[in-house]
């Protein structure tokens, strides 16, 4: 079974290729949406899973599965739905001529794609880690977690932002991106 850290890097590289295909102006639009996703997760986070769990199993607690597993499904479904919405729906694109030159354009296309991949993949991994890898119950993850993976998972966006400052930092970043979109 492929280690979780390698899987995360591979997925992030896939986002890098997506960035190269879609180009910087559109990928920056996707960054705006992903920042909004992070903001929503920072505010609601694991409460989302608890709400769904409560709605589904309030009347039938005997049939209720592990809370962590439900929370994990809900958060991954939320992130997955957001990604589909960003790429399949109307893209918030920055208008104008791109690239400034071929090589610089390619580098920035890739970088912004990798950045988006880091936001999406590492956030999903962080919640999985925080919930104790509940997919073990389904045989989708086999412990133990390597030391490298333990170090890498701490590089998730919401882990890097100091506790309690997430809404301010993410809100400020979102406002900055929207401001850039408006002045373009």
């Amino acid at each position: 079974m492929i280690p979780v850290e390698y899987m995360s890097v591979i997925l992030m590289i896939v986002f890098g290729f997506v960035g190269m295909a879609r180009k910087f102006p559109r990928e920056l639009g996707a960054t705006v949406a992903y920042t909004a996703m992070l903001f929503a997760l920072a505010v609601f986070g694991e409460r989302l899973g608890r709400i769904v769990y409560g709605l589904l199993y309030r009347g039938n607690p005997e049939a209720a599965p592990d809370l962590a597993l439900v929370q994990w499904f809900v958060i991954l479904a939320f992130i997955g739905a957001w990604v589909v919405m960003v790429y399949a729906g109307q893209t918030l694109s920055f208008a104008g001529k791109w690239p400034p030159n071929a090589v610089t354009g390619l580098v920035f296309d890739m970088l912004i794609g990798l950045f988006n991949g880091w936001i999406v993949v590492w956030t999903a991994w962080q919640y999985t880690h925080r919930l104790g890898y509940p997919q073990q119950a389904l045989g989708w993850f086999v412990p133990p977690l390597s030391e490298r993976a333990s170090r890498w998972v701490a590089l998730a966006p919401l882990e890097l932002i100091p506790d309690g400052q997430e809404p301010w930092v993410l809100g400020g970043f979102l406002a900055f991106l929207v401001f850039l979109r408006v002045v373009r």
Binding site: P25, S93, P100
Partner: peptide, 18 residues
């Protein structure tokens, strides 16, 4: 990086079809 990328987006119509 984002600021530089945005300032690198020129005015007018896109060079590549978006």
């Amino acid at each position: 990086l984002i600021l530089f990328g945005v300032t690198g987006i020129g005015g007018g119509k896109p060079r590549q079809k978006m």
